[in-house]
Simulated scan of single mutants.
Amino acid sequence: MKTLKTLFTVAVLVVTVSFANAQSDKTERTIGIKTEKIKVSGTCGMDKRRIETAAYSVDGVKSAVWNEYTQILVLKYSVFKKDAGDKAQRSIASAGNDTEKYKAEDAVYNKLPDCCHYRTMKM
């Protein structure tokens, strides 16, 4: 009888720990997180690093992943920082890459490495 109680106690403990670990997985947490897809111009891996770094510099941004082929930034930020999406776009534009809402200043854009120039030349 004593071994049965011990076995039951261990089983309950294992199940409790498993549920506790599943609840604490922060990578899958979506409550309080807003996801936004933003078109951001760029051409290369250097742009990717610049765009994601600029987005992460904004308070409230939890995740920023830019795809150079689709030119879409998937931005996740706290719902308590309602202006984080707009601030991220401003930060990206100030770093030299155009977004849906903001265009980078020509002086900043021209200082980017040649491989990062995505604007077409007008003739």
Rank of each mutant, 00 (worst) to 15 (best):
K5G: 11
K5D: 06
K5M: 13
K5I: 15
K5S: 13
K5W: 11
T6V: 12
T6S: 11
T6G: 06
T6W: 10
T6D: 04
L7R: 09
F8K: 13
F8W: 11
T9Q: 02
T9D: 00
V10P: 03
V10I: 14
V10R: 03
A11Y: 02
A11E: 00
A11T: 05
A11S: 07
A11M: 06
V12G: 03
V12K: 01
V12D: 00
L13A: 11
L13V: 08
L13E: 00
V14K: 07
V14F: 14
V14A: 07
V15L: 14
V15A: 13
V15I: 15
V15M: 12
V15F: 09
T16F: 11
T16I: 11
T16K: 01
T16R: 03
V17G: 00
V17H: 00
S18W: 13
S18N: 12
S18C: 13
S18F: 15
S18D: 05
S18H: 12
S18P: 03
S18E: 04
S18A: 15
F19W: 13
F19H: 10
F19N: 07
F19Y: 14
F19T: 07
A20T: 03
A20F: 08
A20W: 04
A20N: 03
A20Y: 06
A20S: 08
A20L: 08
N21S: 12
N21K: 12
N21W: 13
N21H: 10
A22W: 10
A22Q: 08
Q23G: 08
Q23D: 06
S24A: 14
S24G: 06
S24V: 10
S24H: 09
D25Y: 09
D25G: 05
D25Q: 09
D25R: 07
D25I: 12
D25H: 05
D25C: 06
K26C: 05
T27I: 05
T27V: 05
E28W: 14
E28R: 15
E28V: 15
E28Y: 15
R29Y: 09
R29H: 12
R29M: 14
T30E: 11
T30Q: 08
T30P: 01
T30F: 07
I31S: 09
I31E: 09
I31D: 10
I31H: 04
G32I: 00
G32S: 00
I33G: 00
I33S: 01
I33K: 02
K34T: 04
K34M: 03
K34N: 04
T35N: 00
E36M: 09
E36V: 13
E36N: 09
K37A: 14
K37N: 15
K37P: 05
K37I: 14
I38F: 06
K39G: 03
K39V: 09
K39S: 14
K39C: 02
K39W: 05
K39M: 05
V40A: 09
V40M: 05
V40T: 09
V40I: 14
V40N: 10
S41Y: 05
S41I: 01
S41N: 10
S41G: 05
S41P: 01
S41W: 01
S41T: 02
G42H: 10
G42Q: 08
T43P: 03
T43M: 10
T43H: 05
T43E: 12
T43V: 13
T43Q: 09
C44F: 01
C44R: 04
C44H: 02
